[in-house]
Amino acid sequence: MSTLPVLSISDLIVEFPTRRGVLRPVDRVGFDIARGEILGVVGESGAGKSMCGSAIVGLIDRPGRITGGEIRLSGERIDTLSQEKMRRIRGKRIGMVFQDPLTSLNPLMRVGDQIVETIRTHLPVSEHEARRRAVAALEEVGIPAASTRIDSYPHQFSGGMRQRVVIALALAAEPELIIADEPTTALDVSVQAQIMALLKRLCRDRGTAVMLITHDMGVIAESTDRVAVLYAGRLAEIGPTRDVLSSPRHPYTIGLMASTPSPTGGADRLSQIPGAMPNLRAIPPGCAFNPRCTKAFGPCTSELPVLKPVGRNEVACWLFDDALTGNPNKAEENA
């Protein structure tokens, strides 16, 4: 078994040329996901989480495109592949789960036909064999009476059941990587936990790597091994989930944690980060977070911070630059 990470992104840049200048929804983002690992990607709406996912599978809407960095899947570079080769990787080596199971399935097609279609697109098997596998896939995601439900239409399933079907579809060709874009956001809270448990179990059993895009810190805490925090298209902080959650370093991550209710926390009021994430057209120079940051100083408004190891996390913040502050733990004391 290779020790290469399943997914390895470095310095990824996605740009959208528009009439009023070039927008950069993803700016020099880099991370790895190992076999069987679940990486959570958090951030506000528009922070570039979903765009990252789209970039990995080569499905960025026109006119956007990848203009820098590289994406490797098990060591093989995939961001430069032709559309046809990329198409064969989608669904086969990278599976996707989208936010809304109600709209992810073609309403006019039986779910079984959609699974069979996916299997036969990627694997050289007969119709009969594909159908057998489709029933097995539905059983595996916990759909009762799978051999009869396979002939049902999407509208005959509930939301949670539909998301199970979507997961079965994503896993149908046994991919190495699953990109789950807010897979539980559209579901009831009680169903969310079931779906996350299912996704975790299936991926652990198969050693599938998962990139879990979400803005739900509860899901992050419960399900992920590591977490990456995105802000305005840039990576603010990345590290083991426990460390990022218990001792966040980047002022934005700290603010994010403070604004998330915790079952044990005693605060009456949740704190909030003043201001809003900048528009992509008007990202401030230096650190994108500087206008909202209470600890901003000299270099923050002019120089772009790069990721540096701090404890077990990696943080992009000038507060942790030894040469500038002389004390790597200054921020912690202030916090």
């Binding site: 499905l59 990787i89 989608r90 989208f98 006019l108 279609e117 996916t118």
Partner: peptide, 24 residues
Amino acid sequence: DYIRFARARGLGDRAIHFGHALKN
């Protein structure tokens, strides 16, 4: 969304245009 999802499943253009989009 289901066309996006169909693309994410790696279906070819023909299957997407005629198998999924046309009927809808």
